[in-house]
């Protein structure tokens, strides 16, 4: 059981965030927050704007309007490497390990540059080894990403994001495409991170995961927030059911995101 501090401080505050691509409003007027040591899930059908929100928070895109605050300080429109050093680590939905670097080197890179103050090469390497062990890559330090399985590549992504010692960790569909056993392992990993006190915003569509580990859920549809609350309340929200319905009647056991 997670012992909640009585009054949780807000770590991430997203305020009336809007992003257009040409005529398309990928994210429209979305507000939500993530408290310290909280795990919040961002869900919604495919194209709802979830990844775009990650890109806005991590500085890959600049918002058209709205604000993003990390620990009270506005980070909207800062460059990605600045945001990273302020404490935001992320993974990518489409895995992007550096192909010509070994697993360890991938993770070391995050440790070397992603924080302030800078750490020495030796410290970075030591910590990277630790992180690789933590995510279950301890025996594959010298392997190259292309020789690894999909779950292992996802582990690299997570370890690399953790290496920047993020205050806030953004996980983009790290469990999609995994077998049920692999998913269970991934859930255990996230739970392990939660025990270490991490704050996590995650995009996920495997409902079992969302229900099991989130403190709160934010539901997006067509770029807008349609619902927010504890997981068991959100799944009964008629608006949420409607948003997902089209996909669910196809007989899939989980909504396609």
């Amino acid at each position: 059981m997670r012992k909640d501090a009585p009054a949780k401080m807000t770590l991430l505050q997203v305020d009336r965030l809007t992003k257009h691509f040409g005529g398309l409003a990928a994210v429209h007027d979305v507000s939500f927050h993530v408290g310290e040591r909280e795990i919040v899930s961002l869900i919604g059908p495919n194209g709802a704007g979830k990844t775009t929100i990650f890109n806005l928070v991590s500085g890959v895109y600049r918002p058209n309007s709205g604000d993003i605050r990390l620990g009270g300080e506005s980070i909207a429109g800062l460059r990605p490497f600045d945001i990273c050093r302020k404490g935001v680590g992320r993974t990518f939905q489409i895995m992007q390990p550096f192909p010509k670097m070994t697993v360890l080197e991938n993770v070391v890179t995050g440790a070397l540059f992603g924080r302030k103050p800078k750490v020495s090469m030796k410290t970075a390497e030591g910590e990277a080894v630790e992180l690789c062990r933590l995510v279950g890559l301890g025996d594959k330090l010298k392997a190259f990403p292309k020789n690894l399985t999909v779950p292992d590549q996802k582990r690299i992504e997570i370890a690399r994001a953790l290496a920047v010692r993020p205050k806030l960790l953004l996980l983009d569909e790290v469990m999609s495409g995994l077998t049920p056993t692999e998913t269970d392992e991934a859930i255990r990993l996230v739970l392990k991170l939660r025990e270490t006190g991490a704050t996590i915003l995650l995009i996920e569509h495997v409902m079992k995961v969302v229900m099991g580990i989130s403190d709160r859920v934010v539901v997006l549809h067509h770029g807008e927030k349609i619902s927010e609350g504890p997981p068991f309340l959100v799944v009964d929200d008629p608006k949420v059911i409607e948003a997902y319905l089209g996909k669910m009647v196809d007989g899939e056991d989980e909504p396609a995101c």
């Binding site: 490497f81 550096f98 192909p99 080197e105 070397l112 992603g114």
Partner: peptide, 25 residues
């Protein structure tokens, strides 16, 4: 021998990811 090697390689292999990992390209 230095951290430059990591920065250079990361930028070469994927500038966007390098950026998100705290490297100023």
């Amino acid at each position: 021998q230095s951290r430059l090697n990591f920065a250079f390689t990361a930028i070469r292999e994927n500038e966007d990811v390098a950026n998100v990992l705290g490297i100023n390209p």
